[in-house]
Design a protein around this nucleic acid. Sequence first.
RNA 1: GUUCCGUUAGCUCAGCUGGGAGAGCGAUUGGGUCACAACCAAUAGGUCGGCGGUUCGAGCCCGUCACGGAACACCA
Length: 891
Amino acid sequence: MNRNMAKNYDPKDFEDRIYEMWESSGAFRAERDPEKKPFTIVMPPPNITGQLHMGHALDQTLQDVLTRFRRLQGYSALWLPGSDHASIATEVKVVDRIREEEGKEKEDLGREEFLKRAWQWKKEFGGKITKQCRKLGDSCDWDRERFTMDEGCSKAVNHFFVQLYNKGLIYRGNRLINWCPQCGTSLSDAEVEHEDKNGYYWYFRYPGADGSEGIVVATSRPETMFGDVAIAVSPEDERYRDMVGKTVILPLVNREIPVIADPYPDPEKGTGAVKITPAHDENDFQVGQRHGLENLCCINEDATMNDLAGKYAGMDRYECRKAWVKDLEDGGYLVKTEEMVIPVGECYRCHTVVEPMLSDQWFVRMEELAKPAIEAAKNGTLRHVPDRFEKVYLHWLEEIRDWCISRQLWWGHRIPAYYCEDCGELMVCEEAPQTCTKCGSSRIRQDEDVLDTWFSSALWPFSTLGWPEETEDLKYFYPTDVLVTGYDIIFFWVVRMVFSALETTGEVPFHDVYVHGLVRDEQGRKMSKSLGNGIDPLEVINQYGADALRFMLTTGITPGNDMRFKKDRLEAARNFANKLWNASRFVLMNLDEDGVEEVDPALWKDEDKWILSRVNDAVRYVTETMEKYDLALAGQRVYDLIWNEYCDWYIEIVKERLYGDDEQDKKTAQYVLVRALRDMLTLLHPFMPFITEEIWGFLPGQAEERDNADSYLIRAKWPVYDENLTYPEEVRCLEMAMDIIRSIRNIRAEAEAPSGKKLRAIVLCNKDKEPVARAGERYVRTLANLTELTFIGDKSEVPEEVMSAVVDGAEVFVPLDDLMDYEAELGRLQKEKKRLEGEVRRVDGKLSNQGFLSKAPAKLVDEEKAKKVRYEEMLDKVNQRLALVEKKIGG
RNA sequence: GUUCCGUUAGCUCAGCUGGGAGAGCGAUUGGGUCACAACCAAUAGGUCGGCGGUUCGAGCCCGUCACGGAACACCA
């Protein structure tokens, strides 16, 4: 039997080995066990282009903690992993690689060859993150790992697309979309980030066609003037009333455009007159629609000007802006220039300024789809944790506009729409048609575009379980229980999963959304590539161990709030692991060869009952907080239990028995030590799976079972709160003993007596407390490092030369011989007096308040009354001592 | 502009449905004690951002202001 734990805690010694042991034994596999309740989490699929960063580490650790907790509770816990094809990001990477290695553009290769390269790239780098996840200890079911572009998910995408199309919820239209000239594709509204930039308002005069002064209009984007088709003013605006219905001249271009009245312009803003460019501005587009105006596009897809811009054609949009403003100024049309902060939209991938453009794209009609998703949140079928995020979710859904889903890229799910080359018929179907359903032609062309990455992500909770097939997994594990994700991704993902699931499966994809914040650097800045302030989780694991990282990430947070990555908190977590390691080693070293046997509770000592009831309390607290997703509180409680109660008190108390001669008592202590440790390891396991599993393997009865996967901690039983395991009497005894011990230690420190020096102590206690105090004698003697502890029944027996302390129900005296320091004693007593007076004052205040007496709960009033008695008694004793000491010093 | 979050010990943060302010780190003091110096023991540090209100009672609820941060919107 191997019970020798390594002397030093070094996570490198076992973390990889433990993980391998779990994985190869199938500990992560979730079976469809009809005897068990399912618990399901789908992992937000990391991009195949990415590397594991702190955000993943947080996100995944939270999921792993929840999964392990439920698995221990006896659920069939499935954590389903996978990765996302990340259309734009991957395409950019592959394009770069081809350019670098082959000196070619993707167009040179053609679509088919390009896709071969992309799949090759996926094969080489796509598994990177999932490999790194293992270092974190992620207990996901790798046998069920999925990819958004694998066969099943692709089938789900086509099925969903066709279903929506057939219901009229997907349409193709010529609408204003966000265009990224760098990525060369359209973007959805969610993919545009707004940023304020320094810019200008240029005020230009559009002369009247009749030779009048015309109208002055402000713009921050003069280059779009080539697409102007009207000037709009408010019908309420007196200044321009006469102009409505007339025409003005587009400067230098010399095109005549009408002045129209429309509610859109706000007379307060700018000059109150707005140039209308329907092809390059959403609001203008709507004005154009209302007035039947033409849409004039003047900018190309690569952000150069087109022929409409005349001599500027071919110029970049910003170069054109410069030249055009100069020319207008020279022509005398520039009235004034104003510096302004201009909000601009940027591509969330490459941060190029997005150009609003009129374009043929595919859209999802959102109005109908949004309704059940809104309802699900409102009626509580879908809960947000913390609940304030429900507001964010609802706000987005209530304001939602149609979703542009087509992308002008190659890497992704190709849109399942087909056109007949002969008659132009449009066919939308899951499998490519061989012939045109209308004219029978076999000249069929598939739509060139691919779908928004998020279109497939939206199906993730059910496509990964087999949808649209009615698989056994789908029936058993769906809907999933909780989705864990950052708040930055609610719009992209959470909202879309909910409405897609409600539309297809008729159910919410998950009941709870647990939203967490961002991991920031030590100074509170966002971790980013450009700042270079990112911290690599793998390096942290290498240095401190995965358990320390996990504990730090999960206990240092409040749900929904950002956290700072502080090194000292990481060290604290590592130190905690070290503490647990050493305590466990101590326990194991003090066991007999033949292990431990259950000991009848009749033989338990007070401290045994005390620690077991503390563990029992923690079991209830930890279970409750975990179920409410208050992981930080749960983790903190286990920390306190292990360090402050088990190590600092119980182990210290029990040492004497372990080293003593009473064989039965020794066995009792061993049994309780192991029993408490076993429960604590289980409670801590979700947070620190490696170290707890490693220690578990050394416990008596486990070592022989090392080949039996069912005996691993990962598969153990979560402890259940036991109503019979409460011992109020014994707990009170221990607490009194601790009070006395603390008071003696305090006296020792105040008197600057060396902590190694043995002291004598005398306890004078209230009659009713005497049995309790005497019961604690053993602990006090040992833990306060005393040679002698005597109990006296009367004040007259107190020697003269003593330092004293008052605790609840007793007075403690320490004769300090030649070390006697009356000044220190005086200071201590005065401080104590002040404190007690404060307490008495507070309690008196409450008890003299009629409102409190009549309105506060009776239990509370009684408690306060009891406190008053206690404090006054203690204060009285302190005052008596004080008088004595003052007399001594004075005399 | 709309909405949201934060403001608690020197620092970073907890504080569950209102009922005697906590932790970690840091500081100070003492300790090489046979599980652990990645440790032990003890101590000091807070009119819980300001002002009003509700309540017998407010760090917690309401209003308001200040400062810090975020999301959404806005390119006349």
